[in-house]
Design a protein around this nucleic acid. Structure first.
Lengths: 219, 219
DNA sequence: GCATTATTTGAGGATGGACTCAAATACGTC
DNA sequence: GACGTATTTGAGTCCATCCTCAAATAATGC
């Protein structure tokens, strides 16, 4: 009966049939949407179940408590983000700084919903922050690696600092595209411009054949 | 007895003596701190009273409900932010783009706690978003005005787009300085550098005496 | 000092939301 | 079709938190 670890609150109870696995997917999707919309605290377990088309009992079959739902979401989002950033460096080899800047921007735009949900989850507990920091470290490392592939000879510490800057620039674009701000419709393009300008200026000294560093039109 | 407006939930009951006014200050300060730390939902009315050195009854004497506390805080923060941005344009007349960039950055760093508290409050209700948007509009308008003072002839729409970019850049620095990220200690400086680079590049064509646009050391 | 009014207090009422569990139902396998 | 197990259900418990209110206390004006 108590063959499970006695340290867990209860049995985690993972799904064993396809119906259960699908239910878990629906529940997590509903929880992700709701928590991204309203935040962790404001989202109720009953709401999560309702949006997933289930009853609250089903929710508690697969997740011992509300925190476990948040944990599952965090883990899931982190894993996907790590994959994306790990894949980034491989694409960076043949790119100009300007093209790399644009690709980085595009990447975070597509990752937007997931990151937003993640930051909403962080509201919940401080002890999850270290997980977020770990993910951030992966992102920074991935971007820094891409920068150094693009510009060999770039100092590693500087690459990380620059990666942190670019990462946050991407976050900004994300929030610009999220809020519909009618007064600043040209702002996203300005941001891209700033990003290109910055990477172009900082990577120019380290590029191969740096005779024409000011012109970035490689294709 | 019901001489007050019949549309309000109850009588707002503003303080009439100095003791009451001070209590309101203490209560709002406590609420601001707690909600910035833990978020709106996670902050309880009892906690607010306790941190202010009061009992829950006193809190409810001056605020009919929790939402009213949030409203008061939002209003207060917005007013101060509007003042700061309105004062900005007056300082911008004699500055170089690079110096303006640095001053803008410094400004948002000092405004950090207030903005953080504000965004925590926004978690509460969607209908407060329009207030936030209004504040954002003031900020963008203030920065855009400063840019045009610094660079006459700059198109107004472009100035607003650039202002939005700079505003968000300031937000980024804010979050960089908040989280202690040991791996990227040089990132804030890199961000300042990007900001200077961007403003310098974009404002150069519009500056008076634009013969030495690349050098920004005005003093 | 006395009357009046503002402020404080804290025990409860009401509500909502996290979580339980025993019984019913659907599914998979033989 | 029968059996065992996974899944579903939803009424019910518990408790934290929002909020009330009548009585106590402190401040102010005369």
């Amino acid at each position: 009966m108590d063959s499970n670890t006695s340290r867990a609150k209860r049995t985690p109870l993972q799904p064993l049939r396809s119906a259960g696995r699908q239910r878990v997917e629906e529940l997590l999707a509903a929880a992700s949407d709701l928590m991204a919309e309203r935040g962790y605290e404001a989202t109720t377990m009953a709401e999560i179940a309702a949006r997933a088309g289930a009853k609250i009992g089903s929710l508690y079959r697969f997740f011992p408590n509300k925190e476990a739902v948040a944990d599952a979401l965090v883990q899931r989002h982190i894993a996907i983000l790590e994959d994306e950033y790990a894949a980034l460096a491989k694409r960076a080899a043949t790119l100009s700084p300007e093209a790399l800047a644009d690709i980085l921007i595009e990447l975070l735009v597509t990752l937007h919903p997931r990151v937003k949900s993640l930051s909403a989850l962080m509201e919940a507990r401080t002890d999850k922050m270290e997980i977020r920091d770990r993910a951030r470290g992966h992102a920074v490392a991935g971007i820094a690696a891409a920068l150094r592939v693009c510009a060999p000879g770039l100092d590693e510490a500087l690459a990380k600092d620059m990666a942190a800057v670019v990462l946050n620039t991407m976050k900004v674009l994300r929030s610009m595209l999220a809020n519909d701000a009618p007064t600043t419709s040209g702002a996203p393009d300005e941001l891209r411009r700033m990003n290109r300008l910055y990477l172009s200026d900082r990577l120019a000294p380290f590029r191969r054949g740096s005779d024409n560093a000011t012109d970035g039109k490689t294709r």
